[in-house]
Design a protein around this nucleic acid. Structure first.
Lengths: 153, 153
DNA sequence: TTAACCTGTATTAGTAATTATTACAGGTAT
DNA sequence: ATACCTGTAATAATTACTAATACAGGTTAA
């Protein structure tokens, strides 16, 4: 997992939560800096997980859950399709001809499991509302205006 | 960072620590299931970090630090060239034309920093000796023989 | 009711990250 | 002096990720 789906999903959900007028996938893709089709696929994952709602033919994604109750672990699971965060990649072809090669897998898996669990726990402690709060703080800090160009975003 | 250097480095260090007779990079590459040249590059990183010693022209990598004092964070830093574990990748092109795009970076960075720190802490708590212990347990559990084919590996 | 825009999805192409391959200049040991 | 080794560079191949394109419907508003 070295993709940007999780990061983009957080961005997307902030847009969904905060936009004054409903945004289309194309508009969100422009804000995220990604491809509209890719964004729709990401949105589909979030919808299937029950995080947002959407309907064919009609702009207007909506949060299906209060931002304060949506943990980033939920977001991660939906966006990346994995129950637990996967921090490292195990080497794929250890040799069975060697005693170390024959037994390295469970070793690595046990180690990784602990790291993964620590990362997963960290994600569970945060919600989308925390993200929105951080964003607003940064907006305030920089003196930027929250509404701009018509207020839609 | 989605490569297998960390996982491979652990494997390599176990070999270095446990092999009865010194192994060459080619032998280690065979055990790891990777390319000899790539393994030598990995070994170079470990040597530069003071984790192992080696000399041109002569097989025989050696641990430069007691296995019980070598944390996996040390290994990670040497193998991957990063001070802290990097769990997620941030999306690269958020648009400055959008208020969310303008302020999402610090939000994402703050979130990621917490996750990274949790993962980094987990790595710091483990040593190479723990890995070797796990490996031996698995060897015992499966009834495999630790020495085999001459005992070298 | 038709034009404009939308979602959802599939397919293919492009790009970037990762590893393999090859090569070779020396060092070391038997 | 032969065989094997490390260290390193350059290039190719592979894989993972994203972009691009297309299109079948759904929806809205003039």
């Amino acid at each position: 997992m070295n993709d940007t789906r999780f990061s983009s999903a957080v961005h997307l959900l902030i847009l969904v939560s905060e936009a004054e007028s409903p945004m289309s996938s194309t508009q969100m893709a422009e804000s995220i800096g990604a491809n509209p089709s890719w964004v729709r696929k990401l949105a589909t994952s979030l919808r299937e997980a029950g995080i947002i709602t959407s309907r064919p033919g009609r702009a207007g994604f909506k949060l299906a859950v209060p931002a304060g109750e949506l943990t980033l672990l939920d977001v991660y699971r939906a966006a990346c399709g994995q129950q637990t965060v996967r921090v490292f990649e195990a080497h794929r072809n250890p040799s069975d001809a060697c005693i170390v090669g024959r037994h390295i897998r469970p070793v690595v898996e046990a180690l990784f499991a602990d790291v993964d669990e620590a990362a997963t726990r960290a994600l569970r402690e945060k919600t989308l509302a925390d993200c929105i709060r951080l964003l607003r703080e940064d907006v305030d800090r920089t003196g930027d205006k929250y509404a701009r160009e018509g207020g839609a975003r």
